[in-house]
Amino acid sequence: MRGFMRFLILGLVLLGLAIPAYAKKKVVIAGSTTVLPIAQKAAEIFMNNKGEADISVRGGGSGVGIASLIDGTCDIADSSRPIKDTELDKAVANGRSPKAHVIAMDGICVVVHPNNPIVELTKKQIKDIYTGKISNWKQVGGPDQKIVVVSRDTASGTFEAFGELVLKGERVRADALMQASNQAVVSTVSKTPAAIGYVGLGYLTSSVKAVEVDGVKPSKENVLTGKYPIARPLFMYTDGNPKGLVKEFIDFILSQEGQKLVEEQGFVGLK
């Protein structure tokens, strides 16, 4: 996919060189891999709607995105966390004033097999299950059954969010099943009676059961009101108030159509 994007970008660059008469306005977006699919999809549609725009999107991680914004090598920095004080100091020293735009919420629900009697877990219990301190469902009030822990691959954005919000940097037990996509997690949990897994809220289907976390149901409303504990806002940072094409792009993401794309990518839209 990356290689393909690079080809695409290369192709666009060559196209730009070949026909300078049609020179395009360029916007560079960099940063969080979690936000990457939203930015990519939005850029694709935005460019289709607006011929003269040329938006290049790349990942790298939130830190890389914000660093690029400070260096002036990107126009929009994707981030899955608020900017840090140290970064803000550096930005001010470089004459930049990063401005945050919350573009979506990232909510993760914890799922079990539909036949599992468990309806609620605490955040602490979920952490202990994933780190291996709890290994049998009876320890959390369920049947006497060994828990099958299902996780996303450690390089994914969903894992990053789960690791930060629930595991607090501790390691997932080594024998956890690592799945390469949200769909694979759902499919594995739905076929494994003793399994526990987690997926982005947008990937929840009726083939698995989402448990309440600390007594709160994982729903769009609870994520947006901040009640649900495994959720976080996703940001796009710009240098000062956005202008021109950058502003149009941010406005597009925040529009009804943009927010629909957000939900299609498995995140929680703001409206």
């Binding site: 996919m1 990356r2 990942g59 890389v64 080594a174 956890a176």
Partner: peptide, 28 residues
Amino acid sequence: GAAVIPKSFFVPVRPMTVAIAAEMGEAA
């Protein structure tokens, strides 16, 4: 895909090709 040393045929494992395929797309 569990990265543990296999002790029987009845456990999940993570062969080399799986690690590469699953992680390359997201590795910086």
